[in-house]
Design a protein around this nucleic acid. Structure first.
Length: 288
DNA sequence: AACAAATGCAACCGCCAGGCC
DNA sequence: CGGCCTGGCGGTTGCATTTGT
């Protein structure tokens, strides 16, 4: 699919548009084995006719093993609405508070669903004043409110207290625990585990070559079908269920993720934000 | 059934910030 | 200190799919 603007001349000869399962396999396999120290060099080393940016986007938005798939829950949507009121179009920061969700995904959900919903509710209840993305960013990036002031976001009053850490959160939104454990791109900084458990598929770069040369057409097709199922490209039935199990397993010991997965009440955004702040400071101490 | 309009979303782009030399 | 390189972010695009007529 040719999306976006006209291709830049230096990228002539590179693949564009939708990724094929084969490309996905190559990328997953390479990153799993070598990590992604240099996105620019990665496609060449992985044998992909893609630019580094494209590889990075594909990995972050679609192939990362820690991604949650499926529709956004009501609670997730409420959280997005509230955080958007706080942060404006800071999709990456909002995403950092929603484990398993990407900035791109959140941006899409906002633009396609939530914006319209807010608009509709505003028309229905003209007295309410939903904060616009720009106003949220602009107002908060300006003068800092004094202690005791209340920031009203989507009918949700947030007391602004300098001792509370809210202002710091807004301005210096910390990394989520998810990012702390797997980094922003979902891959450990050092790949040490020799067991290739990504997607539960036995992928190794060396094997790919053997696979390509020796596997029969049926074997290749079956393997790619399996990949499609794992990626959610194939409606195989219970793959989603398996993912939810994985998510549930990962919840233990992660306050923010637990919070979201168990009882993500939109009215508890303060709690959420506190958790993020707390967890961030704990991690900082641990690392220092 | 056929066509048009609306919607969803993956992937593109340019720009910017931070790190390195 | 300034230039270059890279990664990351936010905005935009257009194809595929769904819905309406």
């Amino acid at each position: 699919m040719g999306r976006g603007r006209a291709p830049c001349c230096e990228k002539v000869g590179l693949n564009k548009g939708s990724w094929t399962p084969e490309e996905d396999v190559r990328l997953i396999s390479y990153i799993r084995k070598h990590g992604h120290g240099n996105w620019r060099a990665l496609p060449k080393q992985a044998g992909l006719l893609r630019c580094g940016k494209s590889c990075r986007l594909r990995w972050i938005n679609y192939l990362r093993p820690d991604l949650k798939r499926g529709n956004f829950s009501k609670e997730e949507e409420d959280t997005i609405i509230n955080l958007h009121g706080l942060l404006g179009n800071k999709w990456s920061k909002i995403a950092s508070c929603l484990p398993g969700r990407t900035d791109n995904e959140i941006k899409n959900v906002w633009n396609t669903h939530l914006k319209k919903r807010l608009k509709a509710s505003h028309q229905f209840h003209p007295s309410t004043t939903p904060s616009s993305p720009s106003s949220g960013t602009t107002s908060l990036s300006g003068d800092r409110p004094t202690d005791g002031e209340v920031l009203s976001v989507d009918n949700f009053d947030i007391p602004l207290d300098s001792n509370h850490g809210m202002w710091e959160l807004i301005h210096d939104s910390p990394l989520s625990p998810l990012q702390q454990t797997v980094d922003t791109t979902g891959v450990p900084s050092e790949v040490t585990d020799p067991v290739d458990d990504i997607l539960g598929l036995p992928i190794e770069p060396e094997l790919w070559g053997d696979f390509e040369s020796s596997a029969s057409a049926d074997e290749k097709q079956g393997w790619l079908t399996l990949l499609e199922e794992e990626l959610g490209l194939f409606d195989g039935g219970d793959s989603n269920e398996a993912e939810m199990d994985t998510v549930a397993e990962e919840e233990d010991g992660d306050p923010v993720r637990n919070y979201f997965h168990r009882s993500p009440s939109s009215a508890s955004t303060m709690q959420l934000l506190d958790s993020v702040v707390l967890n961030s400071s704990e991690t900082t101490e641990t690392n220092s």
